[in-house]
Design a protein around this nucleic acid. Structure first.
Length: 170
DNA sequence: CCCTGATTCGC
DNA sequence: GCGAATCAGG
């Protein structure tokens, strides 16, 4: 499966959301966690909820003096659960203008995340979505596991199977 | 043994 | 660029 623009987008979002590589891989489908990790690294984004990792290969003495950790944390817009849930839109006051932000998005607008959730220009797709739906028809297929291809040939609900058996017995 | 991300390396 | 294999750790 190729890394399309939107898949990369989704990957970045989920990764920023704090999901593990395996979870992302499982959610997206068609890729393994290795693929996700590899892509994450290739994209340059790596490390977030994994602090204090002296990076594998602990040599005898390694303490490079770092002088680049100056002030660099202006604000981090907390965006909770961008992917799931429709209503309960976090009333975050984040105004960037006429964009479809968390503040301006409506219930019937596509909530597919566009851009970096940690940046100011982050917004949503905004295309018309069915009432009660989170995404427009285009992104809906991406949001829901498209290649959820799992062969389940004759898996009937247990209750139904029992009833069927009973009826046959009597 | 389950899991995590990190790195390597053949493709 | 991609990702399986591998590595290093929790």
């Amino acid at each position: 499966m190729a890394w399309t623009d939107e898949r990369v987008e989704l990957l970045k979002t989920l990764w920023a959301e704090g999901l593990s590589a395996a979870q992302i891989a499982n959610k997206m489908g068609g890729v393994t966690r290795n693929a996700v990790i590899g892509k994450v690294h290739r994209l340059g984004l790596s490390g977030r909820a994994t602090p204090a990792k002296p990076q594998r290969g602990c040599g005898p003495t390694q303490q490079e003096p770092r002088e680049e950790t100056v002030a660099a944390k202006p604000q981090r817009s907390e965006i909770k659960s961008v992917i799931p849930e429709v209503d309960t839109i976090t009333p975050v006051v984040l105004d960037t203008g006429a964009m479809t932000t968390v503040a301006t998005i409506k219930n019937n607008m596509c909530k597919w995340p566009i851009g970096d959730p940690a940046k100011e220009d982050f917004h949503f797709c905004g295309q018309p979505a069915a009432m009660g739906k989170s995404y427009c028809s285009h992104h809906a297929r991406l949001a829901f596991q498209p290649p959820q291809r799992r062969d389940r040939p004759v898996v009937r609900r247990p209750a139904a199977a029992i009833l069927e058996k009973r009826r046959a017995a009597s």
